[in-house]
Simulated assay, not measured.
Amino acid sequence: MLSVTNLVKTYGKQNAVNDISFELQGGEVVGLLGPNGAGKSTTMKCIVGLLRKTSGEITLGGHDHLSVEAKRLFSYIPETPYVYDLLTVQEHMQFVAQAYGVKEWREKADEYLELFELADKKDKLGRDLSKGMRQKVSICCALLPDPQVLFFDEPMIGLDPKAIKNTKKIFKQLKEAGKTILVSTHLIDSVESIADRIMILKDGNIVGNDTVANLKRQFVQGEGTTLEDLFLEMTKDE
């Protein structure tokens, strides 16, 4: 569903992303982990077209990632949720529905708003929402067009425990429906329970790309190793 080949993103003389390649299949949840500055957000922003890649090839569903055909296939939830100050929560949903040509959207929108405890906030303006509420609105808007691929950049930041639980539940439902999900996060524990596969970035390079069990067998000796232990081992300075 997603193919990234020899992706390079350079700032000046520094490679933020250093010639990385990977693929994501349908029905797969992949966790993208790495220390600050490893290139996680840069990689995701290059894929969705918010940053111009220096070189490489990115396709979604066989289409170039910057094409309209590709953009119809995915939703992106940024680390810092952006909402329109003068649109209500309900109007955000309506705007997305009209932009993507979603028919009969109201019932679906109401389900998502109910799930994230925003049903009583439908008439609240974007400028009056807390960061957590903005994040919830951002997720609801991303889910409404029923995309094939979802990119979540730090989706759990700012969410309360119940919303985190509901987000994980949605990940599971999306996976069962054959959707492809890439989740970038610092919250290692939250991704271990939902990801089929982990990609670990360090200094713009992929240093691990496999199931948690396989990565543990490859890189760590001993029983009782957590994903956090594995992450620290694989990203430590030499």
Rank of each mutant, 00 (worst) to 15 (best):
K216Q: 10
K40C: 09
S130G: 12
R72Y: 03
L174G: 02
L230C: 07
M234L: 15
L174W: 07
A70T: 00
G37S: 11
S138M: 02
F95D: 01
Q173Y: 05
L87C: 13
V89L: 02
G204I: 05
E176G: 07
D189R: 13
A142N: 00
E111K: 14
A38Q: 05
Q98M: 08
G31C: 09
G132V: 11
I164K: 12
K13T: 14
F171V: 13
V17H: 10
L201N: 00
P35M: 04
D153W: 05
I58Q: 08
L232G: 01
E69V: 03
V207Q: 06
M1V: 04
S67D: 03
D64T: 08
F151V: 13
V48W: 06
Q14C: 08
G204E: 05
K13Y: 12
S55L: 12
T80G: 08
A97Q: 08
L232C: 03
Q94I: 13
E228N: 02
E69R: 11
K40H: 08
E23H: 08
P147V: 04
E154N: 08
I164E: 10
G132R: 05
V220Q: 04
V17W: 10
D146T: 07
R197C: 03
I157H: 07
L66N: 12
G27N: 02
V17Q: 09
L174I: 03
K169I: 05
Q148I: 01
